[in-house]
């Protein structure tokens, strides 16, 4: 796997994404979700909200890196809040 040039932070990043996907699959199998409307302007399933949450998180990170001098951990904290809000009320 040396050709993939792994680092510890990127390995943790992908492990977290993989765990999220596995957990969502198990959750969906045990309790299938139906589309619902929250604060997002469209009806979404749980999987849709995870996608929107993760895509939004990527953009939070890009915004913090590109527009501010803040620590990357602030972007991560903002992303965690965003992901939770979308999953819970989106």
């Amino acid at each position: 796997m040396n050709w993939m040039a792994w680092t510890q932070p990127t390995a943790i990043f992908f492990a977290v994404i993989a765990l999220m996907l596995i957990a969502m699959t198990v959750w969906e199998l045990r309790s299938p979700s139906a589309p619902r409307r929250g604060f997002l302007p469209i009806a979404t399933t749980r999987g849709d909200r995870l996608f929107i949450g993760l895509l939004g998180s990527a953009y939070w990170h890009l915004m913090v890196i590109g527009l501010t001098d803040w620590s990357i951990w602030i972007a991560t904290a903002l992303s965690a809040v965003w992901l939770f809000a979308v999953m819970r009320w989106g």
């Binding site: 050709w3 993939m4 040039a5 792994w6 680092t7 932070p9 990127t10 992908f14 990357i72």
Partner: peptide
């Protein structure tokens, strides 16, 4: 794609000579 993510946080000269540079 995962390899590209790995490359994006490192200064890579060859697969054995690389340095983590964060963001």
């Amino acid at each position: 794609m995962m390899t590209v993510v790995n490359y994006s946080v490192q200064d890579i000269f060859d697969p054995t000579t690389r340095f983590f540079v964060g963001t």
